Simulated assay, not measured.
Amino acid sequence: MLLLLAAAGAAGCGGRATTHHKPGTTHQQASGSVGTLLDARDEAGHRLRQVPAKGAPEVKLALRPDSEDGWNLQLEVGNFRFTPDSVGGAALAGGGHAHLLLDGRKVARLYGPWFHLSATQVPQGAHTLTARLYADDHTAWAVDGKPVEAAVPLTAPAPGAAGHDHATPGAPSTSPPSAQAPSPDPAATADRTVTLTVHDGKVTPAPGRTELKRGERVALRVTSDRADTLHVHGYDKELTLPAGQEATLVLTVDRPGLFEVETHESDLVLTQLLVR
Rank of each mutant, 00 (worst) to 15 (best):
E149R: 10
E216L: 08
N79E: 04
A11N: 12
R226D: 03
R49F: 02
A167T: 14
E262C: 13
T240D: 13
Q121F: 12
A8S: 15
A179G: 10
D144C: 00
P65K: 02
P207N: 07
H27R: 15
A161S: 06
D165A: 07
D228R: 05
A187V: 05
T210M: 01
V194F: 04
P157E: 01
P65C: 03
L249A: 00
Q272G: 11
T189Q: 13
A243W: 04
T25V: 11
R81S: 11
V222L: 00
S33N: 10
M1V: 10
V59M: 13
R109T: 12
T128C: 02
S173G: 15
E211C: 00
R81Q: 11
D66P: 11
L102W: 03
S33H: 10
T18I: 04
Q272S: 14
W71S: 11
R47L: 03
A150I: 10
A162Y: 13
V143P: 11
L212E: 08
F80C: 09
T18Q: 10
T223I: 00
G94M: 03
L129Q: 14
H199Y: 03
K54Q: 14
A167R: 15
P123C: 07
F115I: 06
A8P: 15
L129V: 11
L101E: 12
G89F: 05
V87P: 09
